[in-house]
Amino acid sequence: MSDSEHDRDDELLERLRGELLGEEREPDADRIAAVRMQAQAHRDARAAGPATRRRRPRRDFLLGAGLASAGAALGVAGFAIVDDDPAAPPTEPISLSGAPTGVRANAELINHTWGVELVLTVSGLRDGSTYDVVYRSASGDVPAGSFVGVGGEQLCRMTGALLRDQTEAIEVLDQDGATVLRSTLS
């Protein structure tokens, strides 16, 4: 292809861009606020050091702009707001099996319109080890994020893009992929 043909294509692509974008609209203020809050929460968590890793921002921080904007209005981190929110969504307690010796855990699910949130309280996991959370379904596995064990008790909120009625099981895997905790859902 010659330079002139390249130039012509580039010109056409740029012309198409304006059309494909349609009417550009300003991003929602709530979404922008959520981005800023999450960045700040990451920055705060890093500055505070490993001991506060349990308080890293929620994975779904940006998914619920309403929650994020509520946090913005109060001027505090979103993950702290949700626990105290009187309008918090109902939770579904689930049982966990397979916990290794010394590991204690309990968990609840929140059934969101966009997926499932796992609220996991666990203690006794290896300090510094990485754990993955996976949602199992008939159509395949969906990752729900990862977290670092802190040894003591930690609260982790994990989210995955799988609807509750499609979620058949939830597993916490160690760095070797071995199942540490499992819940089979009805």
Binding site: L21, G22, E24, P27, I32, V35, R36, M37, A39, R43
Partner: peptide, 27 residues
Amino acid sequence: RARDFDPDAWEALYRRLHPGLHAYARR
């Protein structure tokens, strides 16, 4: 600056990429 989780940097990146990302998702 985004690597340091500067909120201003992340807002700038969001504003910069939002039109294209949203249009791609919209299709």
